[in-house]
Amino acid sequence: MARKMQYGIGMRTQYAAGFDMQKGFAEHVEQARLAEKFGFDSLMKNSHFAGYPLQEFQQLPFLSRIMTEAPSLRLLTGIVLLSLQKPLDLAEQLASIDVMSGGRLIFGCGLGYREVEFRGFGTTQKERVPRFIENLEAVKRLWTEDHVSMKGSHFELMDATLSMKPLQKPTPPIWMGANADVAIERAAELADVWFMNPHQRMETIERQVEVYKRALDRFNKPFPDEIPIAREIFVANSREEAINTAKPFLEEKYKIYHQWGQDKVMPKGDDNLALDYDELLEDRFLLGSPEEIAEQIIAQNRQCGINHLVLQFHWVGIPQELVLESMTRFAEEVRPLVEQGL
């Protein structure tokens, strides 16, 4: 694996109800500046609507604002809940971000799974796959063609030409988040890159890489240069210290995912996020000393080809100084060890 490892910072920007979100934003500005200073490669913002009992910023305004703090980082929508959106709206907003940032956008998309979101956008869980597919086709056409005419199930493009095309040609890279095997096959068919699922154990991912490769072969597509995954990370002096420090925050986080029903979309045998913390830890998060984490990253690169790691340093309730310290130790201690080891 000759290609250099790239690192992103994931910003969910989630805070407990009642937290002052202006302070939350200031914390993330500080993290973005630090990521820029340390030479991270990308900055990711996810998207959820009606995220109660958590607060968070919306993806596109957040990325549009934070880009000015981190002018070298690529901007990753990780992910857009594509089935909810109208393609003309999304294609224009994303094209604006690509142009405003000088061509730094990565368009990450995925299905979503929360009832409150489907209903809020006037759709249903049942419609999500056909909408996803037609929306992606429409966005790609709007980005690359003029005078697009296309009748979808929930929109109609009538000789529509975008107000602005993206800067990156033919399109910004399209990453598709996928958990289930069938979704991974869809990623091979429709997207530039499979964005691996952050909640899965590595052994599951290793198996799924084979699913992905077989599907790529079927569609006559090469294995992409870039193989990204998002992971939770905390760097400390030892695994024990990392686990104990991160425990209250990560437990809370995964409890809420379970409430939201995230695990319903994960593959059988690895579909329970209501597990004890100790079981969740196993092979799922990067928690430990710099040496231990470097070893895990190298192993993931060798086993699965992962070469773009989007790291989530921040969880609900974690004090800012712990985030900054973990980021700093990652950049100064873990990264050189990975470079030596690869």
Partner: peptide
């Protein structure tokens, strides 16, 4: 405006968000 052909334009929400700092 969407699909503003023959004119080009930057979308509103990303633009205002980016301007907030400047």
């Amino acid at each position: 405006h969407y699909a503003g052909y023959p004119l080009q334009d930057v979308q509103q929400i990303p633009f205002l968000a980016a301007l907030a700092r400047e």
